[in-house]
């Protein structure tokens, strides 16, 4: 090929091979170093938050000594516990609804024509690609406009006055807004799983005169379970962690943990915030590992090798 390759004397071959080997080792080292640096970069902030939660100094950014006091202070802080409770209720309700709706829709879309399916595809992708901030503001103005119209009517029906039923911003609007994005997410995960599913089992089940419900319960559902579990956990985490949408459609009294943390951080990081963050991190990582264990267990039971959380997330 290249002129130098042809010109190289045959006797130099052995030396060239050794050089190539050495080069290979060098490049391998480069890759390893880069990988180590990237992992350090990814974990540095997580480690820092955890370490500084044990910092005795009130100014969270400078290390002075070790203490576990901040955890006690955080857990006795009524604002923290209230927002933690709100976040948990919202995330859990959202995850239940989104997982149910998303799975139902994925199953339903198998039974419709191409046109309808494509229509849903467009909506699903739009709900995922439109920037969060746009969805948040659009939902806000839509709700506000609707409430402006509906509330006087409701007031008229219920006789007005102080006890009148009124629609307003709060947990309900937050959950409603979160469910949109997460339904799309679950829908995509479950559909990916459905399309890779072994149809012959379903057909065999039907041939053996199983009812559609029984086929679903014993064949389809177990195969979908990894995607459903992953969808549930992802929905819970996304909702639990969401700041942008929540902050725009929230109402009085429904402060969530991210809203609390954001507000604190804008005034300067405190060790108490770090303690709250550390507990949140421990909780989410714990949930991820539990999910992983459930999927591994399920995978062993059903003999499928695709049962890891990492596989579900990286699967397309």
């Amino acid at each position: 090929m290249s002129a130098s390759g042809v010109a190289r004397p045959r006797a130099g071959r052995g030396r060239a091979l050794i050089a190539a080997e050495r080069m290979n080792g060098f490049i391998d080292g480069l890759f390893r170093t880069q990988a180590a640096l990237v992992y350090a970069f990814l974990y540095l902030p997580i480690v820092v938050v955890v370490v500084f939660a044990f910092n005795a100094n009130r100014l969270a950014t400078i290390w002075t000594g070790f203490t576990t006091d901040w955890f006690g202070i955080a857990l006795n802080d009524a604002v923290v516990t209230k927002s933690l409770g709100n976040s948990a209720i919202i995330a859990f309700t959202n995850a239940i609804l989104a997982t149910t709706f998303g799975t139902m829709a994925a199953l339903g879309l198998q039974r419709v024509g191409k046109r309808t399916r494509q229509g849903y595809d467009v909506l699903t992708y739009i709900s995922i690609i439109v920037p969060e901030i746009v969805i948040a503001l659009a939902t806000l103005v839509f709700f506000a406009s609707t409430f402006d119209v509906v509330n006087p009517v409701l007031a008229g029906l219920t006789g007005g006055g102080k006890g009148a039923f009124k629609l307003g911003f709060g947990q309900f609007t937050i959950i409603a807004a979160h469910v949109l994005f997460n339904t799309s997410l679950v829908l995509l995960l479950v559909r990916a799983r459905l399309s890779g599913m072994d149809r012959t089992l379903v057909e065999a089940s039907q041939d053996l005169f199983a009812t559609p419900w029984r086929t679903f319960r014993q064949i389809t559902f177990p195969q979908l379970l990894p995607a459903i579990v992953a969808g549930f956990l992802l929905s819970f985490t996304f909702s639990f962690d969401d700041y942008v949408i929540t902050s725009f459609v929230t109402g009085p009294g429904s402060t969530t943990l991210p809203i609390y943390i954001f507000g604190q951080v804008k005034r300067g990081v405190s060790p108490e915030t770090n303690a709250v963050a550390t507990m949140v991190l421990a909780f989410t990582v714990g949930m991820l590992l539990i999910g992983q264990a459930v999927l591994a267990w399920q995978g062993r039971r059903s003999g499928s090798r695709n049962g890891s959380m990492a596989n579900i997330v990286t699967e397309r």
Binding site: L42, Y43, L44, P45, I46, V48, V49, F52, A60, T61, T237, F240, D241, Y243, P258, I261, F262, V265, V269, T273, A277, V280, L281, T284, V285, L288, M309, A310, V313
Partner: peptide
């Protein structure tokens, strides 16, 4: 997957420190 899964907000504000 772990960092991807943990709070975006927390991982972001940590850079303040």
């Amino acid at each position: 997957v772990i960092p991807f899964w943990t709070s975006f907000l927390i991982r972001t504000y940590s850079w303040l420190i």
